[in-house]
Design a binder for these strands. Structure first.
Lengths: 257, 257
DNA sequence: ACAGTTCTTCCGCTCAGTGGAAGGGGCCTA
DNA sequence: TAGGCCCCTTCCACTGAGCGGAAGAACTGT
C-alpha cells in the first residue's frame, strides 16, 4: 500500500493550523524539518502545505531559508477586532508621556492575559511582555484587574486550579488571592510587587464599556521605585476613564480587544 | 452524482486562504453568505471550513453573529518579522513627541506601501492610513522615499504602468515623477503636497540597514501648515538615522518590516 | 400566514491529498 | 576523495476526506 499508514481523521484545515500553530514567541522561525516535527506532520506533507502557504505569503523565508510568519498574516491580524486598541493607543502614549514608564493594554483570553498593545521608551527595559504574548492572570497587574471583575463562577474555577508561581512573591493561596481581588474591585485598581518578575512592580486598572470590563491598562516599573507606584495610580485611572468614555460614545458594535 | 460538478484543482489550503483573504479593511466582518460570495466557494464548503477556523479562533464572531478575523490570527501576526517595527517604535514616539504630528512607518510590499506602524494624537485627525493598510507608492511620502531607492529596473517598470491619480496634485507623468525621485534620492527625503489626500502634506525619509532601504518613516500634517513641513525634516532625518543605527548594531538576521 | 433570506445538516461519489521512499545537494570530518 | 549526516525536494499509487447540491431549520419582515 502506497499511502501506508496515514493519519486519518485530521482535516487539511487542521493540518494547516498545526503548521501555523507551530510558530510561537519562542520559535518565531523554523526550518522545514523543525516545523514538521513541531506540527506532528510528515515531512512531505509539511513541505507541500508550506509551499502553498508561502505562495500566499502566509509564510515567508528568513534570509537563512528558515520559515517564519509572513506579512500577509500580519496584515490579516490587523483586521482582528481592534477598535479598542486603536482608540486606546493615544491614551497609552499620553500615560507613557506623563509617567515615562512602560504602559500595557491587555485583554483576557481564556485563563490568561493577552497583551494587545504596549508603549515603552527606547532605553533597554527588561522585556516582560511583548505585544501578542500571554501570561497567567494572578501574578500580573492587568490580570488581577481583569480577574477581579469576572463573575464569581469564573473566579472560583480560576482559583480552583493549580496556580503557577513564577516568583516567591506570587500570591497563589486561594483565600488570600480572593481577598486581594475583592480589594482590587473595591478600590478600582490593582498593584503587584514582584509577583510575576523579580525587580518589577506594577499598577493596573480595568477599562469598562457599558458596565462590562473589556480590557485593562497597566504600568510597570522597576521595584526599586515601588514607592512611586501610588503616584501613578491617578494618571492611570484618568487614562482608563478616558478610554472608557471614548469607547462608550461611538456607535457601539464589536468591541473586542 | 452526489458531488455534482465540483471545482477541481483547488486545494483545501487555497480555499482556506480564499476565506481569510475575503476579509479586508473595507470588509472586516462578513456574514457567512457574504463570505461564501466573496471567496467564491459554495456555501456548504464555506460553512464547514469556517467551523474549523472558528474552533481554532482563527475566526471569531461579532456580537451580531458576523464573522471576523480572530484573536489567534492577530497573535500569529505579531510573530511576523517585526524586529524593525519593535526597534523603530520608540523613535516614532519621540518624533511624535517633538512634532506632535502623525508619524508612520511603512515598507514596500509589491508595488504598494504597507503601513506597519503609526503614532498619532488622540484628537480627530483625518485617518489616511491605518496600520496594515496599503497605498500606491507615487502619491505618498513614504512611497516616494522607498521607490527612489529601488533599482532602476524596478522604478522603470513601476512608471510604465498606468498610475492612479487620487487627487489633482498627484504626479503621474513618468518624466516628472522620475525627476522627482532623483531629487528625493539626492536630498535624502521626500515631500508631498496633497498628492494622496487633499488637505494633507507630508515628509518622509528612508531607513537604511547595511546600505539597503528596508522601510521609510513619514510625518503627515494638514496642508494649511505646509510651510512648517521643512522644519520637520531635521527631526525626521535624525529619527531615521537613529533607527538605522539601532538596526545595524545587533546580530543581523531577519529584518523585515 | 407567507415569502424571502440566512444558516445548518445530510450523504454517497470521487479525486485531491497523502506519506513512505528515493533522489539531490550541502557541509562537515577523516 | 570518500563517507556520513542532515535537510530539502520530488515521485507515485492508493483511498478516505472533502465535496457541494439539496433539503430542512431558523429567523425576519410584511
Amino acid at each position: 500500500m502506497a499511502g501506508g499508514s496515514r493519519q486519518p481523521g485530521r482535516s487539511v484545515t487542521s493540518k494547516v493550523l498545526s503548521i501555523l500553530g507551530a510558530f510561537d514567541a519562542a520559535h518565531p522561525q523554523l526550518s522545514l524539518t523543525d516545523l514538521a516535527r513541531r506540527s506532528g506532520l510528515p515531512l512531505s506533507t509539511t513541505h507541500r502545505l508550506v509551499g502553498e502557504l508561502e505562495r500566499w505569503q502566509a509564510l515567508s523565508r528568513a534570509p537563512d531559508g528558515r520559515l517564519r510568519v509572513g506579512l500577509r498574516l500580519w496584515e490579516l491580524g490587523q483586521l482582528a477586532p481592534g477598535r479598542m486598541r486603536e482608540l486606546a493607543h493615544p491614551w497609552l502614549q499620553e500615560l507613557f508621556g506623563t509617567t515615562g514608564e512602560n504602559v500595557h493594554l491587555a485583554v483576557r483570553d481564556g485563563l490568561e492575559v493577552l497583551y494587545v498593545d504596549k508603549v515603552h521608551g527606547r532605553h533597554a527595559v527588561p522585556i516582560v511582555s511583548r505585544t501578542g504574548s500571554r501570561l497567567p492572570m494572578h501574578p500580573t497587574g492587568v490580570g488581577k484587574a481583569l480577574l477581579a471583575h469576572e463573575p464569581d463562577w469564573f473566579v472560583k474555577s480560576y482559583l480552583a486550579r493549580k496556580l503557577e508561581r513564577p516568583t516567591a512573591h506570587t500570591i497563589t493561596e486561594p483565600g488570600r488571592l480572593a481577598r486581594e481581588l475583592a480589594a482590587v474591585r473595591a478600590q478600582g485598581y490593582a498593584l503587584t510587587y514582584e509577583e510575576m518578575t523579580l525587580g518589577s512592580c506594577s499598577a493596573a486598572a480595568p477599562i469598562l464599556v457599558d458596565g462590562r470590563v473589556v480590557a485593562a491598562l497597566g504600568v510597570v516599573l522597576s521595584s526599586r521605585r515601588a514607592r512611586e507606584l501610588t503616584r501613578l495610580v491617578e494618571p492611570l485611572l484618568s487614562a482608563t476613564a478616558g478610554i472608557s468614555r471614548a469607547c462608550a460614545s461611538p456607535p457601539a458594535s464589536g468591541y473586542g480587544p
